[in-house]
């Protein structure tokens, strides 16, 4: 499977999904007007990946901002990961948040309460 590599912009995050390593990353700002369009290729890619996933998948989320339409799309990403986890594969989400950014920590905790995949909350201390 070809990896997905998308350069970040002021409104969309950097995406690195690599099936050869099983390490995925979403980093930066996710505030586009049309989030569905941006995230659709990732969802399609994950649909393929979940057929033959790695034994271990590590997902690093390092978001500075995201809007509410992205929040639904990110949940869709997590739901694909949950399916992979349910099929007895190891999946781990590392949710990074900046020091004192309690809103971003709460956002991670929201997902953790909805999705049955292990989350680690990691504070970035400058």
């Amino acid at each position: 499977m070809e990896p997905i590599l998308i350069e970040g912009t002021p409104k969309t995050p950097t995406i690195k999904f690599d099936s050869s390593t099983g390490v995925f990353e979403i980093k930066g700002r996710s505030i586009p007007e049309n989030s569905v369009e941006f995230y659709r290729p990732l969802i399609d890619w994950l649909d393929l990946y979940k057929e033959t996933p790695n034994n271990k998948t590590v997902v690093n989320i390092k978001l500075e901002y995201f809007n509410t339409s992205s929040s639904k799309c990110i949940l869709d990403v997590f739901k694909k990961l949950e399916t992979i986890h349910k099929a007895k594969n190891e999946v781990e989400v590392n949710w990074y948040y900046e020091e004192d950014d309690e809103d971003m920590l709460e956002a991670g905790e929201d997902y953790e309460s909805i999705i049955r995949v292990p989350f680690k909350m990691i504070e970035i201390v400058e």
Partner: peptide
């Protein structure tokens, strides 16, 4: 969390979030 988890996203945005 309820809206996030239960409402379909629309082309118009976050579905009321």
């Amino acid at each position: 969390k309820f809206i996030l988890n239960h409402q379909r996203i629309s082309i118009k945005g976050g579905g009321g979030l």
